[in-house]
Design a protein around this nucleic acid. Sequence first.
DNA 1: CAGTGTGAAGTTGTTCACAGCA
DNA 2: TGCTGTGAACAACTTCACACTG
Lengths: 222, 222
Amino acid sequence: METTDKKTIHTSVPEPTIRRMPNYLDYVKLKKSEGVLYVSAPRIAHRLRFDATQVTKDLAYTGITGKPKIGYNVSDLLAAIEEFLGFNHLDHAFLVGAGSLGTALVGYPGFDEYGVKIVAAFDNDPLKIGTNIRGVPVMPINKFADLAERMHVVFGIITTPADQAQQIADLMVSWGIEAIWNFAPTSIVVPERIIVQNTSIYANLAVIMNKLHHKTETKTIK
Amino acid sequence: METTDKKTIHTSVPEPTIRRMPNYLDYVKLKKSEGVLYVSAPRIAHRLRFDATQVTKDLAYTGITGKPKIGYNVSDLLAAIEEFLGFNHLDHAFLVGAGSLGTALVGYPGFDEYGVKIVAAFDNDPLKIGTNIRGVPVMPINKFADLAERMHVVFGIITTPADQAQQIADLMVSWGIEAIWNFAPTSIVVPERIIVQNTSIYANLAVIMNKLHHKTETKTIK
DNA sequence: CAGTGTGAAGTTGTTCACAGCA
DNA sequence: TGCTGTGAACAACTTCACACTG
């Protein structure tokens, strides 16, 4: 496998493949906890309602190889997926906006298991400053610059209301953040070099609402 | 656009188009609040970093038509997008799992503005039962069936830990829910007819981590 | 000229078909 | 037979090119 240049640092893994990876991880962890030794692509596909070939191709991106008729070794596969997702690094993150969503994210289970540690939260509400959320301190925003450098934080999470998101994003950029995960219900604009992931709750909601109304239509009400 | 009257719902709108719609809505609302009368696709595209033709095509799905050189009437466009997203209906939803994420969602701004009203939350923690979150009561799960029918709730939101998600999904299905929005970090399996949207925080995280590590690679550290 | 609207080309991702293997 | 692995067909989405319009 390592013979062809084709294998040299897969210049680009399809984004859908990356998005499916956590599903495989979840399933494989489950199987491992059950003591299962091998899993096959068709089985995974069946459980997750994916196409079997797709699973095979996705898993190939992790560099693993399986055995015909048997499948993939569960432990090897688990390691390969974790490696692929970069969970050997532990990246430090700052979160800005300690409202209910921010609080929920700080407490989200398995974040560090996924290679991310939220080391501080920021807010401009004096009542929140000085408190902490599950051990993560809440600080005033002007401390950010200082700390980001000292703690080598390259990853910023925005959970502010929409009208503050752009402003916070600008600050993050000026402070040297490399990637921004934006949960505010508005899209932010940053320089090319910055990685942005706009995660809008509303995009998902829109899809559901659309399907729901479509379905209703099909059913010919009443 | 010959006419099939604009009401005959386009047989199938591409999902990416639907996902972008809330972005347009957000932008158009902003413009309206600024008193702007017309917006053009290229301007929207520039702000959102989309392709201009794509914006044009997306907006066409709402049934609106623009004026060459001028663009789209802001009020008409706003109405068209809201109509498209189905915000005239107000759908009732139940949420199961009143932990931090569930609590955050109940309090999420503009949910009802987006056509969804969370009318009750459920949990199995006796300490939570009987309390309420911003006016939304928290009840024991066995009340679900009863209420779902009475209140015509067709939409269930799962914010439980991963290990309870499937079980809750099964219950929702048996109680007549039509659409499930699953935030638990595991994918659930339901009958074909049920609409499911698995919204995994981890899928987004995986994309960011992948890009971040890739970037590091490219930069050749040190 | 600055925009809409649309068919056609291009790109990306998914699914099929099948060779090879245990 | 049940699986991996892969090239090739296919489907979905995006971008280009351009006619048209106020």
